[in-house]
């Protein structure tokens, strides 16, 4: 058995070769070779354009991600604990889950103007219902027996939250965070494209108007690398740490 790294490397090289082959075969500006894209990528990094736009997008991502997770977790726990509240708001939740992302984005811009807060709000609105659903499930699955144990040994609220409830909710929070990150990445670009004058989405829009495929691909590559870094440097270790007690 070879290591996972080996398979990743080989499959990546195969993809690059396929791309190179297609680019050579069609020989058009609309499908540049990997090398051309790499050159554009480096040029964009050196000019400071890409780091700036990526930074702006990442900042928006961080703020809206945090807000959505906090809000969604709080609402999800509340709904999971109080069945009356849950029965009442379940209908709302279904409606919000099914509003297309584009509609919330447009409405936010129309109602609040083309400002930063509207952009963030639009992303948060799209994400919160998913977090609520996941955390509601997690709260319903809390182990009644362990809560009884904590009560009879007088853990108190803080100890109970930290040692009994949090470890049980953590896998659900991680699941919400991962799917959430993937969702927010995609929505945030649309938000920027429609109503901001900086960020990755705005820049991609410019490239689109100029039919600059190399630029689009260069930004995409930078994008993928950053997502993978967040995933493997942040989310995976957190996940592993939370699972170490399992058999």
């Amino acid at each position: 058995m070879r290591s996972d790294l080996f398979y990743h490397a080989v499959s990546l090289i195969a993809l690059l070769l396929l791309w190179q082959g297609a680019a050579v075969l069609f020989d058009t500006n609309l499908l540049p070779t990997p090398l051309t894209v790499a050159r554009v990528l480096i040029a964009e990094i050196e000019s400071g354009q890409l780091p700036y736009n990526l930074g702006v997008t990442l900042a928006r991502l961080a703020v809206s991600f945090m807000l959505a997770m906090l809000l969604g977790t709080a609402i999800g726990i509340a709904l999971g604990r109080h069945s009356r509240l849950d029965r009442f708001f379940d209908g709302w939740l279904i409606i919000f889950l099914n509003i297309p992302a584009l509609v919330t984005i447009i409405l936010c811009y129309v109602w609040f103007g083309l400002v930063e807060a509207a952009a963030i709000l639009a992303v948060v609105f799209n994400k919160v219902p998913n977090v609520v659903v996941t955390l509601r499930e997690g709260t319903r699955a809390l182990d009644r027996n362990l809560l009884d144990m904590a009560q009879s040994y007088r853990f108190g609220q803080w100890k109970t939250l930290r040692h009994v409830i949090w470890p049980q909710l953590f896998p659900f929070i991680m699941a919400a965070a991962r799917t959430g990150l993937a969702l927010i990445w995609k929505i945030i670009l649309v938000v920027e494209l429609l109503g901001r004058s900086n960020g990755m989405g705005y820049q991609l829009h410019l490239f689109f108007q100029m039919f600059d495929v190399a630029g689009i691909l260069a930004y995409t590559v930078a994008f993928i690398i950053v997502i993978q870094l967040i995933e493997s440097a942040l989310l995976k270790p957190l996940d592993r740490r939370a699972r170490r007690w399992r058999r």
């Binding site: 027996n145 362990l146 009884d148 144990m149 040692h163 009994v164 470890p167 939370a242 007690w245 399992r246």
Partner: peptide, 9 residues
């Protein structure tokens, strides 16, 4: 308790 009810984590 009838079951140990330990915190597995």
């Amino acid at each position: 308790f009838q079951e140990p009810r330990l915190l597995p984590w």
